[in-house]
Write a protein that binds this DNA or RNA. Structure first.
Length: 484
DNA sequence: ACAAATTTGCG
DNA sequence: GCAAATTTG
């Protein structure tokens, strides 16, 4: 490593990662307040994460989010430097090349990120450069919330009860009013050269109309939600045919908005009540997932409950493809899978239904579903994805009754009563009357004929029989108990 | 209100 | 020791 110059004029680096925003960004604020010129850096590293390199939908979002961040930084007088490659090499190399005094970043919690950041910190230190790191992504970091025994929480409710008091006095940080740019002469890749957007085929045509990536879009989404839907959230969040949820998940994943900003805004703008309480609890679930990932770092790969290691999964390529393509013959499942494919997002209630269907009706390993979601969700997030898949599969941190097997018909009837959601995403069922919309195979022949549907031609017959699948899943769980 | 039951977290 | 545990049917 070359000799660093530590003159007063030497720059600092602000390394953006999953914090693509200006407001409530402790690393950015500290970097600007250091008084030194700042190099704002983003590194696209597809090597360090291994199998958890960003998936396709997530890359679409990243492209637009970086474009937005770059534009807002320019308004403050700074350029966003883009580099692609091994983050360790790039960050330590750039710091050394430029004689940076300090590197600022907000902490990440993915196991590969923690390992990477630790080695970067060590290497920087050896070269006389300090890494200064901050909490920009969580209400409270995992090592700061322990049970009375000193161990990590493994049950959500007590976790949330312990978390909430820490959120009483949140005061989000302001955005810096200006940034002194230190990036003159520093090479930046062109964003377009990263090819984050799909070309042929362009599977993302349905994404643009639904999403506004970037800090402004995140802010607008939060404000609209708190004005319109938050009050009734406890009831409407379960109805996939309505705009009952916040849709903040991709913004949160990329750090276009922080959970501290969300908590603070909700508490100040939504009247106290069931809706607000339920929404804050959802923010709490995200924290709980990060807590789990931090303390059980193989959560994305291994059953949290070891007894599931002997579970008789039964992978079938054809059946799996039917699931991914929304061709299972269960309308609520197919609607969800198609919404996911077309918009990069799926309503939370439906995520639970399709995940339960994959793991319990089809007996396909939750890790296959986790991988599919990783590639297709714009909000793909290692902690949330892993914790949630394990939760549904029954292998996760949950005193789950093993008999919790979602019935895709009754779930549909309960949460999409009029069938609006199904009709939106499974248009071939548009003309099927409400009465049969969640179970087309029960419709009399003349009803199907009038709706213009021949089962097996226009829409699949169910790929499994619910009652039999349920029995099979229960038997599989019993086999676990016997083995143990 | 129940099921069937283990594990967690607090006292 | 004892109460409690998102989302089930």
């Amino acid at each position: 490593m070359s000799t660093s110059s530590h003159s007063a004029g030497s720059p600092v680096i602000c390394w953006f990662r999953q914090d693509l925003r200006l407001a409530d960004n402790p690393a950015l604020l500290a970097a600007t307040q250091s008084g030194a010129p700042v190099i704002c850096l983003y590194v696209l590293d597809d090597k360090t994460p291994g199998k958890w390199a960003r998936g396709g939908a997530s890359r679409w979002w990243l492209h637009h989010s970086l474009a937005a961040l770059s534009a807002s930084l320019e308004e403050l007088g700074a350029r966003l430097v883009l580099r692609r490659g091994d983050a360790f090499e790039i960050v330590t190399g750039l710091a050394s090349e430029l004689g940076a005094q300090r590197v600022f970043w907000n902490r990440c919690y993915e196991p590969f990120a923690r390992e990477r950041d630790t080695s970067i910190k060590t290497r920087l230190k050896q070269a006389g450069c300090e890494a200064e790191t901050f909490n920009g992504a969580l209400l409270i970091e995992p090592w700061n919330l322990k049970t009375k025994d000193g161990g990590p929480y493994r049950v959500y409710s007590p976790y949330f009860r312990a978390l909430a008091p820490h959120c009483d006095d949140i005061a989000p940080l302001p955005a810096p009013s200006s940034v002194t740019d230190g990036s003159q002469g520093v090479h930046s890749d062109a964003l377009s050269s990263w090819s984050l957007l799909p070309s042929s085929p362009d599977w993302a045509t349905g994404f643009g109309p639904v999403w506004t990536p970037g800090e402004d879009g995140a802010r607008a989404r939060l404000e609209t939600f708190c004005e319109d839907a938050a009050r009734d959230y406890a009831d409407t969040r379960n109805l996939p045919g309505t705009d009952g949820t916040s849709r903040l998940s991709p913004h949160l994943h990329f750090g276009e908005i922080s959970p501290r900003q969300i908590w603070h805004h909700a508490v100040s703008h939504v009247p106290a009540g069931k809706g607000r309480e339920t929404f804050l609890k959802e923010i709490g679930w995200r924290e709980f997932s990060y807590n789990l990932l931090f303390h059980f770092d193989d959560l994305p790969e291994s059953n949290y409950q070891a007894k599931f290691n002997g579970f008789p999964w039964n992978f079938d390529e054809t059946v799996f493809k039917n699931w991914t393509r929304g061709q299972t013959g269960y309308p609520i499942v197919d609607a969800g899978m198609r919404q996911l494919w077309q918009t990069g997002w799926m309503h939370n209630r439906v995520r639970m239904i399709v995940a339960s269907f994959l793991t319990k009706h089809l007996l396909i390993d939750w890790r296959r579903g986790e991988e599919w979601f990783w590639d297709t969700l714009v909000d793909a997030d290692l902690a949330n994805n892993a914790a949630s898949w394990q939760w549904v599969a029954g292998s996760g941190a949950d005193a789950a009754p093993y008999f919790r097997i979602f019935n895709p018909v009754t779930q549909g009837e309960k949460f999409d009563e009029a069938g609006h959601y199904v009709r939106e995403w499974v248009p071939e069922l548009t003309n099927l009357p409400e009465k049969y919309i969640h179970a087309p195979w029960t419709a009399p022949a003349d009803v199907l004929a009038r709706a213009g549907i021949t089962l097996g031609r226009d829409y699949p017959k169910p790929i499994v029989d619910h009652a039999r699948a349920r029995e099979r899943a229960l038997a599989a769980f019993s086999s676990l108990k016997d083995a143990a």
